[in-house]
Nucleic acid binder design. Structure first.
Length: 504
RNA sequence: GGCCCAUUCGUCUAUCGGUUAGGACGCCAGGUUUUCAUCCUGGAAAGAGGAGUUCGACUCUCCUAUGGGCUACCA
């Protein structure tokens, strides 16, 4: 048992796009598995036929592909389809439900939703426990013949776990330590529904984790309250000695206010909560980290540090470094508010870290979108000049559009500040100076222009800022002579002439 | 309402009884940049409250408060 191979799973329900909190849970599972040379498994928990959403499963696999998180089992990467679905394992669960039934550890209940609602209204703090079940219509209160008759007549029923009250159940959590709960506050949870012949989450989850030899269950804190039930199920099924170890992760919280992070927060606060874009049935589109311009490794890094830290002051980690250094005992216990600003910073860092070639390749489609045709070589060069000023690849356009498109208007504030009465005459002189230059490299041009400014005793700042305004249209951008070298002498002069004519 | 979990700068966090309570994001200031941004330097900024235990508590215990989760024939 102690030397058992590490096998962990990510077990989403295909009820919609994968939430960023789910991504983090999966990431921690992945890091833990890889750290220990174990397996990471995808299992689709589609036991709720009502809430199934088409496309969700594909979305989940696409998202992890984008993030660079690979499953060892549960995905067929030639077709990009999930291979383990609970909805396809009905007979397996049924077998164990029957086992519990014959051993008297579970029972059949015929209560209708209406009957249950009535009881809830009647009894404060209603829970379906030892005292209540004696008042309800189930195989514990009804004669055996009646039960059989009800079933054969086609009445729907559920199977409930039979919980004995009055004893403590201990859950040993790797992150939280020992959590003790008294069985009296647990209710007889539904394990199986006759209507669709499917188990509920709890039953399917325990059976699958056991059968798949899962060693560690790493999941969100929202599962902590049902962990005692799960321990009980392992016990009832006779699997307690090989029960996986539990680790309940803190939740991702809203950046403002209270509550856990939800899809609506993204819409409301203007940041993605999904890895990839998702289009709903009604056509509503929720943006994703990918579409927002995030680099997948930046997202991974950012998420890894939301609820875990290395204990060092390092903050930038590659996936490989994370795998080496990750450990569950450095996970924090309290929920983490989602800080979108820090996410931007991570992306900025990752953009700087990448080569100009890589960033240029991501920028190329944006150039095409803007109707610009330019060589790869030049794109790489320009990216090198402006990438340090952006957080996202798409911001590169605003920082570099003047390389491709001449300004037709000029920022008013800068005109006021930089365009003096003598400026037009000086720039006409500058055109003459530039015309004489044969070596247009940044350095050579700079030498000559500066020599002219010095000779005429002009104010360097005044000339250069007016020059920049004419070429860029505003007061921003890289070194002036780097810009002129890229756009060329003809274009530089044309822009100067246009500015002289246009700016009054 | 009941049960469970949590609580260090605005945010993410370090600290595993003895520290000037450290780092990062963000913010502010200065520097670099002939511009803008980047970058560099500096600054403001925290132990929820109250009882214990201890020579000594951010750290251990209890109470309170606050936040979060669960309380479905959802997962």
């Amino acid at each position: 048992m102690e030397n058992q191979k590490v096998r962990v799973r990510f077990a989403p329900s295909p009820t919609g796009p994968l939430h960023i909190g789910g991504v983090r849970t999966a990431l921690y599972n992945y890091l833990f598995a890889k750290k220990h040379g174990g397996d990471f498994i995808l299992r689709i928990e589609d036991t709720d036929s009502q809430r199934f959403v088409a496309g969700a499963e594909e979305y989940i696999i696409d998202a992890f592909n984008w993030l660079g998180i690979q499953f060892d089992e549960g995905v067929d990467y030639t077709t990009n389809k999930a291979t383990i679905r609970q909805s396809e394992r009905k007979p397996i669960y049924k077998q164990y439900v029957d086992q519990l039934l014959t051993e008297g550890l579970a029972y059949i209940a015929f209560d209708t939703p209406a009957e249950l609602d009535a009881k809830r209204a009647e009894i404060a703090n209603f829970q379906y426990d030892a005292s209540i079940r004696s008042l309800m219509r189930n195989s514990l209160t009804l004669p055996k013949e009646t039960v059989n008759t009800l079933i054969s007549e086609g009445n729907q029923y559920v199977v409930r776990i039979k919980i004995e009250p009055g004893h403590d159940i201990i859950v040993n959590d790797l992150i939280r330590g020992e959590v003790k709960i008294n069985s009296s506050i647990l209710d007889d949870k539904v394990l199986f529904k006759s209507a669709d012949q499917l188990p509920t989450y709890h039953m399917a989850n325990i059976v699958d984790d056991h059968l798949m030899e899962i060693s560690h269950v790493i999941r969100g804190e929202e599962w902590l309250p049902s962990a005692p039930l799960h321990v009980l199920l392992y016990r009832y099924l006779g699997w307690e000695s090989t029960m996986p170890k539990f680790a309940h992760l803190p939740l991702l919280l809203k950046p403002d206010g209270n509550g856990k992070l939800s899809k609506r927060d993204g819409d409301r606060l203007g940041f993605p909560v999904f890895p990839l874009q998702w289009t709903e049935k009604d056509g509503n589109i929720s943006t994703g980290y990918r579409e927002a311009g995030y680099l997948p490794d930046a997202v991974v890094n950012f998420l890894a540090l939301l609820g875990w830290n290395s204990g060092t002051e390092q903050e930038i980690f590659s996936m490989q470094e994370l795998i080496e250094i990750f450990s569950l005992d450095r996970c924090s216990k309290s929920g983490a508010k989602f800080d979108f600003e820090k996410g931007k910073w991570f992306n900025h860092k990752y953009i700087q870290q990448k080569s100009n070639e890589e960033i240029a390749a991501l920028f190329a489609p944006i150039l095409i979108e803007n109707g610009v045709t330019v060589s790869t070589e030049k794109t790489i060069q320009i990216v090198g000049m402006v990438k340090e000023r952006v957080n996202f690849v798409k911001e590169l356009w605003a920082q570099s559009s003047f390389f491709f498109v001449a300004p037709t208007t000029y920022e008013e504030k800068t005109v006021q500040k930089r365009w003096k009465a003598e400026t037009p005459a000086q720039l006409i002189e500058l055109i003459d100076v530039l015309n004489e230059i044969s070596d247009v490299t940044p350095h050579a041009t700079e030498e000559i222009v500066k020599a002219w400014i010095a000779e005429k005793e002009y104010h360097l700042g005044n000339i250069m800022n007016a020059f920049r305004l004419a070429i860029v249209g505003e007061s921003k951008g890289p070194h002036m002579f780097d810009i002129t070298a890229i756009i060329g002498k003809e274009e530089t002069i044309a822009r100067l002439k246009y500015a002289i004519e246009t700016i009054k």
